[in-house]
Amino acid sequence: MDYSKSIINNVVLININLSEASLNQSEDFKKFLYDTTEVTPPKLVLDMSEIQYMDSSFIGALVAGLKNVLSKGGEMALVNVNTDVMALFELTRLDKVFKIYDTKEEAIEELK
């Protein structure tokens, strides 16, 4: 599996183990996110340190996951976003939509 999760201080930490996050993985990832939000309110931290490339379909899965989390009164944060992916978030202005932190510890502290 390309995703793994653990729980730290009532926050679900999701490790995305993909170097290329694209159309091939976006539907599976969206389903994984939806299945992970069964805990109410969901608090998710997505570790994106492995992702070197991301396409629009995977961004769509992230946005759908965020909408699902917010609709349940939860929070979602991204961590370890590399410079190329961050440039994509800035270009699409999604850096204003997502909570983005430098470290897992910082994000978990903010969400717990």
Rank of each mutant, 00 (worst) to 15 (best):
residue 1 M to T: 08
residue 1 M to F: 04
residue 1 M to R: 03
residue 1 M to K: 04
residue 1 M to W: 00
residue 2 D to H: 10
residue 2 D to G: 06
residue 3 Y to H: 06
residue 4 S to C: 04
residue 5 K to C: 05
residue 6 S to N: 08
residue 6 S to R: 14
residue 8 I to H: 10
residue 8 I to S: 10
residue 8 I to N: 11
residue 10 N to D: 15
residue 10 N to V: 04
residue 11 V to K: 07
residue 12 V to P: 02
residue 13 L to H: 02
residue 13 L to Y: 04
residue 14 I to Q: 02
residue 14 I to L: 03
residue 15 N to A: 13
residue 15 N to W: 03
residue 16 I to M: 03
residue 17 N to T: 07
residue 17 N to L: 11
residue 18 L to Y: 04
residue 18 L to W: 04
residue 21 A to F: 15
residue 21 A to I: 00
residue 22 S to C: 12
residue 23 L to R: 13
residue 24 N to R: 12
residue 25 Q to G: 01
residue 25 Q to D: 13
residue 25 Q to R: 04
residue 27 E to F: 14
residue 27 E to G: 11
residue 27 E to H: 14
residue 28 D to C: 01
residue 29 F to A: 05
residue 30 K to F: 09
residue 30 K to W: 06
residue 31 K to C: 07
residue 32 F to N: 03
residue 32 F to C: 02
residue 33 L to T: 10
residue 33 L to Q: 08
residue 34 Y to A: 09
residue 34 Y to Q: 11
residue 37 T to H: 10
residue 37 T to D: 14
residue 37 T to L: 09
residue 38 E to F: 10
residue 39 V to F: 12
residue 39 V to E: 14
residue 40 T to F: 13
residue 41 P to W: 11
residue 43 K to M: 14
residue 43 K to E: 12
residue 43 K to S: 14
residue 44 L to Q: 04
residue 44 L to W: 06
residue 44 L to A: 06
residue 44 L to T: 06
residue 45 V to M: 01
residue 46 L to F: 09
residue 47 D to T: 10
residue 48 M to F: 10
residue 48 M to I: 05
residue 52 Q to N: 13
residue 52 Q to G: 09
residue 52 Q to R: 11
residue 53 Y to H: 13
residue 53 Y to C: 03
residue 53 Y to V: 10
residue 55 D to C: 06
residue 56 S to N: 11
residue 58 F to D: 05
residue 61 A to Q: 07
residue 61 A to V: 06
residue 62 L to Q: 07
residue 65 G to W: 08
residue 66 L to K: 12
residue 66 L to S: 04
residue 67 K to A: 10
residue 70 L to P: 02
residue 70 L to A: 12
residue 70 L to Y: 13
residue 70 L to N: 14
residue 71 S to R: 11
residue 71 S to D: 14
residue 71 S to E: 13
residue 71 S to K: 12
residue 72 K to H: 11
residue 72 K to P: 00
residue 73 G to M: 09
residue 73 G to K: 09
residue 73 G to N: 13
residue 74 G to M: 00
residue 74 G to F: 01
residue 76 M to D: 07
residue 76 M to Y: 05
residue 77 A to L: 03
residue 77 A to G: 05
residue 78 L to Y: 06
residue 78 L to K: 04
residue 79 V to S: 04
residue 79 V to P: 00
residue 80 N to D: 05
residue 81 V to N: 00
residue 82 N to E: 03
residue 82 N to G: 03
residue 83 T to H: 12
residue 85 V to P: 02
residue 86 M to I: 09
residue 89 F to V: 02
residue 89 F to C: 04
residue 89 F to S: 03
residue 89 F to A: 03
residue 90 E to C: 05
residue 91 L to P: 01
residue 92 T to D: 10
residue 92 T to R: 08
residue 92 T to I: 10
residue 92 T to S: 15
residue 92 T to G: 08
residue 94 L to H: 09
residue 96 K to Y: 09
residue 96 K to A: 10
residue 97 V to S: 08
residue 98 F to N: 07
residue 98 F to G: 05
residue 102 D to E: 15
residue 102 D to P: 05
residue 104 K to Q: 15
residue 105 E to W: 05
residue 107 A to M: 06
residue 107 A to C: 08
residue 108 I to G: 01
residue 108 I to N: 01
residue 108 I to H: 01
residue 108 I to T: 00
residue 108 I to P: 00
residue 110 E to I: 06
residue 111 L to M: 02
residue 112 K to G: 01
